[in-house]
């Protein structure tokens, strides 16, 4: 066995994790079996919160919206990020300039992004109003059946640059020799993409997908500012529903129950993705490995 640094090197990190992640998580699990309005002492109420969660239509709808948001964000973000990333890994002349422009949203804070889009999509004074005509009278933030997709669009706009960066880095790491060999064998660019680039980026796709999936499960700030879950509850996704229950309704016990559910589902989903994709074996497919 190779010499490894002592376990104690990791102690500060573990202590930090225990104090700020593990301990609060334990407390949330405990709180989920209580009724607590934030004042006084939490009152144990057994499995009442869990029973309530089981037939809470609003919570179910919120989870459904989160699922839609998750699927839509993944379906839209992955191909865009993958293509831009692979393109940005190349050596084109315009690459540096265009990539910088593409990465711009990455520099903005979430609050700024949400406010920006809120103003742009304003039905009376927004950009959609100015470009007028061809968009018709579409209520991007006001129509309950559209708003969730508007949210997905804004989130995509915000996060595509980050995933692009992942793909760009990974695509750069693919050995040039593979492409040279393929060229000699007569493979065109499209074939090279599907037979070299894509397989080589496999683990990046998985990493980026896990980030997207868990990310959509916990997306919160953008939606809070952009729509605050509205109109009605049309964009009230699970974390926001939990927040509103906890910090507007001050039903801390019940909100903790939702938090536990989110933690379990989030962890479960990432484990599932790793399992299904064989991510854990993590063997390199590159020559010489």
């Amino acid at each position: 066995m190779r010499q490894r640094p002592s376990f104690w090197y990791a102690a500060p990190a573990f202590a930090f994790f225990a104090l700020f992640a593990a301990l609060p998580m334990v407390l949330v699990v405990l709180l989920s079996f209580t009724s607590w309005d934030g004042l006084g002492t939490p009152q144990p109420n057994g499995v009442d919160n869990w029973a309530r969660l089981a037939d809470d239509g609003q919570a179910r709808d919120a989870v459904g919206r989160t699922a839609i948001l998750m699927v839509v964000s993944w379906l839209v973000q992955t191909p865009i990020a993958l293509l831009i990333g692979v393109w940005a890994a190349g050596r084109q002349r315009t690459r540096a300039v265009l990539s910088s422009i593409f990465f711009l949203p990455l520099l903005l804070s979430t609050a700024a992004i949400a406010l920006l889009w809120q103003v742009m999509l304003d039905p009376n004074f927004g950009v959609t109003q100015s470009i007028g005509g061809w968009l018709g009278d579409v209520q991007f933030l006001g129509n309950p059946s559209i708003v969730l997709y508007t949210v997905a669009f804004v989130i995509t706009w915000q996060y595509v640059p980050f995933h692009t960066l992942l793909y760009q880095g990974a695509a750069r790491a693919i050995p040039q020799t593979l492409y040279e060999a393929a060229t000699i064998d007569g493979a065109g660019r499209v074939r090279q993409f599907f037979h070299i680039t894509l397989p080589q980026l496999r683990y990046t796709v998985i990493t980026s997908s896990i980030l997207m999936i868990v990310g959509s499960l916990t997306t919160f700030d953008t939606v809070l500012i952009l729509t605050n879950g509205g109109p009605g509850a049309a964009s009230r996704i699970a974390p926001l529903h939990m927040y509103i229950t906890g910090f507007s309704g001050f039903e801390m016990g019940y909100a903790s129950t939702m938090a536990v559910l989110l933690v379990v589902v989030g962890t479960g989903l990432s484990l599932l993705v790793m399992r299904v994709t064989g991510f854990r074996s993590m063997t390199s497919q590159q020559e010489g490995a």
Partner: peptide, 14 residues
């Protein structure tokens, strides 16, 4: 978001 509610809960408990 659950991260914030967790820390909040922690602070309150403490």
């Amino acid at each position: 978001m659950f991260r914030r509610s967790r820390t909040h809960a922690l602070i309150t408990m403490v």
